[in-house]
Each structure stands twice: as structure tokens, then as C-alpha cells.
Amino acid sequence: MSERKVLNKYYPPDFDPSKIPRMKLPKNRQYTVRLMAPFNMRCKTCGEYIYKGKKFNARKEDVENDDYLGIRIYRFYIKCTRCLQEISFKTDPKNTDYEIEAGATRNFMALKLAEEQAIREEEEAKEEEASNPMKLLENRTKQSKNEIELLESLEELKDLNRRQEAVDYDSMLLAYDPTISQREREEKLQQLDDEYVKTIKFQNSQKRKVVVEEEIIEDDEPEAKVSKPETPKTETASSEPKVQKKIVSARKMLSGLVKLKKDEPKKEEKPQTSGLSLLGAYSDSENSE
């Protein structure tokens, strides 16, 4: 079984390859090869669309009297899959591409033509700059102006990024989480508002002013006694002496203003006679008569 896989063949000692007869073939004969369509094309006869990569049994031949820097150029013949119209194209080693010759039109040629036009314009601009120094100076000034504009726009973007550094996007996303319902979001915001209001009230209660009430009691003694105000616990030690001074000054001012009432003898009250009593008395006098 191993003899089937041997690649080397046996050559007898008296083997002479020159004695093997040779076939006389034409110089430019065609070969049948299997290839794929190198680009998208459309048949001119029936309008059939042939996409890139479709496989064909093609005939290959050498292009006579035509090469590029010693590289041989080949021509291929295929047939349309619908109308069997013959389509021919050849290799293009200069542009590393293929060139359609007859039987079909190449699709999407606009991009290739645009690229070729751009390359041509670039070469013309280089030649003009080399021959005209004023054009070169003008192009350099335009380039420097564009660079300055780019730097200014870059600085503006950097400033904008610095301003947005303080923004906490994570907290914003958590606050506006789409998974949370609208009601839960409103309740959460209400809770935060209530906590903020409580903190403000607590701060205001610590800073409120203490009002000391004074009461004046009238006695038989010539001097009015003023009750001592109770100092609240919230009052600080630093404010105690000031409040005491104010209370003493108020006592002095009030002692001069208050006048005690003397005990006057009570006058005998006259009985008040009403109109009805007088009328009764008058009626009694008539009956007596």
C-alpha cells in the first residue's frame, strides 16, 4: 500500500529525455482557467448584474506586444450567465487592478475616477508650487492660519472640559434612573427637600435672640420690686452680663415712673333710684288718698 504514495518515479539507467517526442502548439494559445470576477460589472446586452467574486470558467491568453516594466499582461474571456455574451478584461499591473475591455461596463467607477482625479490634482499642485514661489508662500500662510484656528478650537474645548469636571454625572444618572418610577422619584425629591428644611430650621433656632420679659409688682413699699428674669439655658455665657446690665437700667427708669396709690376713705355710696321704684311710690300715694 505504501507504493501508491511515493512521489518519486523510477527512471531506468538508459533514460534519455531528448528522445521524448514534443507536441507542436501555437505560440499564443488559450488556456482554460477557473477564476472569480475581479469587480462588479453589468452586461451590455441583457443588463445582467455580475457581482464581484462570482466564479467562471474563463479562457486566458497573453496580450501580444504589451507589457509593463517587463511584467506580462494577460487577457481573460468569460460569458454572461444570462445571455452568454462574451465579456473580456485584462490585467493592469500599473494600478494593481483589472481593466474591462468589451461586453460589459464596470460598476462603481465613480470612486476610482475620483481617486485618480485627486492624485492628478495633487501632482499638479506640487508642480505649480515648485515653479511658482508666490503660490508656495500663499499656501504656507493658509496652512499657518489653519493651524492657529485649530489651536484656538482646541483651547476652547479644553476650557469646556474644565468647566464640566465639577459635574458629577454618576449622581445625575442615579437621580434620573429610568428603572425608578416617577412616583418614587418625586418621593425621593420630597424627602431631600424636607431634610434640607429641617437643617435650615435647626440653624435658625441656634441663632435666635432671647427676649427677657419684665414684670412690675405693686406693693406698699415705695420701691417697686422687679422679678428677676430667668435666664434660659440656650443663652450663652458671653451674653449674660449684657442682659443683667439692661435689667438694672430698666429697674432705675421704672422706679421713677411708677406711682403708688394712697388708701383713700371709702365714700358712702348713694342708693341708685330707678324709674320703676319712683312709679311704684307714686301709685301708692294715690291709693292712700
Rank of each mutant, 00 (worst) to 15 (best):
V63Q: 14
K52M: 11
K94G: 01
D62S: 07
T45N: 14
E101R: 13
Y68D: 10
G53P: 06
A104F: 03
A37R: 06
K52T: 04
Y49G: 09
E101I: 15
F56I: 04
I73C: 02
T96I: 14
G103N: 08
L69H: 07
F89L: 10
Y98P: 05
A110L: 11
I100A: 11
N65Q: 14
G53S: 04
R72Q: 15
R82V: 12
R75I: 04
G53Y: 07
R106S: 13
T91K: 11
A37G: 01
Y98G: 09
G47Q: 08
R42E: 13
T105M: 12
L69P: 00
A58N: 03
L69M: 12
E61N: 10
Y51I: 09
I50M: 15
C46N: 08
E64H: 02
K60G: 02
N107S: 07
A110M: 10
Y51L: 10
P38A: 14
R106A: 14
T105W: 05
L111N: 10
E61H: 07
E101P: 00
Y98F: 15
I100T: 11
T45S: 13
D97S: 15
I78D: 04
M41K: 01
A104Q: 00
R75S: 11
A110G: 09
L84G: 04
N107Y: 04
E48S: 06
L84V: 08
F108C: 11
Y49A: 13
E61D: 12
L111H: 09
S88K: 13
A58W: 02
R59Q: 15
N40T: 05
I50A: 06
D66H: 10
F89Y: 14
A58T: 02
I71V: 13
D97M: 09
R82W: 00
N65G: 06
K60H: 01
D92C: 07
K54N: 07
Y49Q: 14
R106N: 01
S88F: 04
A104R: 00
T91S: 15
D62A: 11
L69R: 08
T105Q: 12
K52H: 09
E86D: 05
I100P: 09
K52C: 12
R72F: 02
I100G: 15
D66F: 12
D67Y: 03
Y68W: 14
L111P: 00
N107F: 07
